[in-house]
Amino acid sequence: KAVATTSWGIAASLGLADGENISFKTQLALVKSLTEHLHIPLSVDIESGYSNDPQQISQNVLALARLRVVGINIEDSDKDTNALRSIEQQCTIISEIKKVLNENGFGRLFINARTDTYFLSESPFQATLERAKA
């Protein structure tokens, strides 16, 4: 059992549109406030990770784990290009997140690797299957 945030809800609460229109620093402060007031586990929607750099994304997730977050939802789209990341790039990102979490004692953090194929692909069914297998 856990409470999950929604990126749209958090952005809207600040009068902004969804799509990483808040900084990760702002996201972290909001999550810190939630974890200080909730008495059940929290999972956080981190959109696309607030970066395209796997090391930076993994450090962002580590910062959330240190706030006692138990899960994340991460998209496979690039906010700069509004296109899907390559499968290889997304797998590298997820692998780097897992590596950093394991090295720091947070290996049990749940990663919901979301795909945005139905928003951004011309043949979403096949793309979804291919990404899920990867």
Results as ranks from 00 to 15, higher is better:
residue 25 K to C: 12
residue 134 A to N: 11
residue 14 L to Y: 11
residue 28 L to V: 08
residue 98 K to M: 09
residue 53 D to Y: 12
residue 35 T to E: 09
residue 11 A to Q: 04
residue 73 N to E: 13
residue 79 K to S: 06
residue 21 N to H: 15
residue 56 Q to K: 02
residue 9 G to P: 05
residue 42 L to F: 14
residue 94 I to H: 14
residue 117 T to F: 05
residue 55 Q to A: 04
residue 43 S to W: 10
residue 124 P to Y: 08
residue 87 I to F: 13
residue 85 R to K: 08
residue 25 K to A: 15
residue 73 N to V: 09
residue 2 A to W: 05
residue 107 G to K: 01
residue 108 R to A: 05
residue 131 R to P: 14
residue 66 R to P: 11
residue 93 I to A: 06
residue 54 P to V: 09
residue 4 A to W: 12
residue 134 A to D: 15
residue 76 D to T: 04
residue 128 T to D: 07
residue 78 D to I: 10
residue 23 S to V: 10
residue 110 F to I: 03
residue 15 G to Q: 01
residue 69 V to Q: 05
residue 7 S to G: 10
residue 95 S to W: 15
residue 7 S to F: 10
residue 55 Q to N: 04
residue 96 E to H: 15
residue 77 S to E: 07
residue 124 P to Q: 04
residue 86 S to A: 01
residue 32 K to T: 10
residue 62 L to Q: 07
residue 51 S to C: 08
residue 91 C to S: 08
residue 13 S to H: 01
residue 82 N to D: 14
residue 1 K to M: 10
residue 33 S to N: 11
residue 38 L to K: 02
residue 18 D to Q: 10
residue 111 I to K: 05
residue 87 I to Y: 02
residue 114 R to L: 08
residue 44 V to F: 12
residue 26 T to E: 13
residue 131 R to W: 15
residue 86 S to L: 05
residue 63 A to L: 11
residue 128 T to G: 12
residue 117 T to Q: 03
residue 74 I to T: 01
residue 30 L to A: 00
residue 81 T to L: 05
residue 65 A to T: 05
residue 126 Q to K: 07
residue 46 I to C: 11
residue 112 N to E: 01
residue 133 K to S: 15
residue 93 I to M: 09
residue 102 N to W: 01
residue 132 A to H: 13
residue 59 Q to A: 05
residue 117 T to H: 02
residue 72 I to K: 02
residue 19 G to K: 03
residue 61 V to L: 09
residue 71 G to W: 01
residue 119 F to D: 07
residue 97 I to K: 13
residue 28 L to A: 07
residue 93 I to K: 11
residue 25 K to T: 14
residue 123 S to Q: 00
residue 131 R to H: 13
residue 118 Y to W: 14
residue 106 F to G: 00
residue 129 L to M: 03
residue 120 L to V: 07
residue 111 I to S: 03
residue 37 H to L: 07
residue 42 L to M: 11
residue 111 I to C: 04
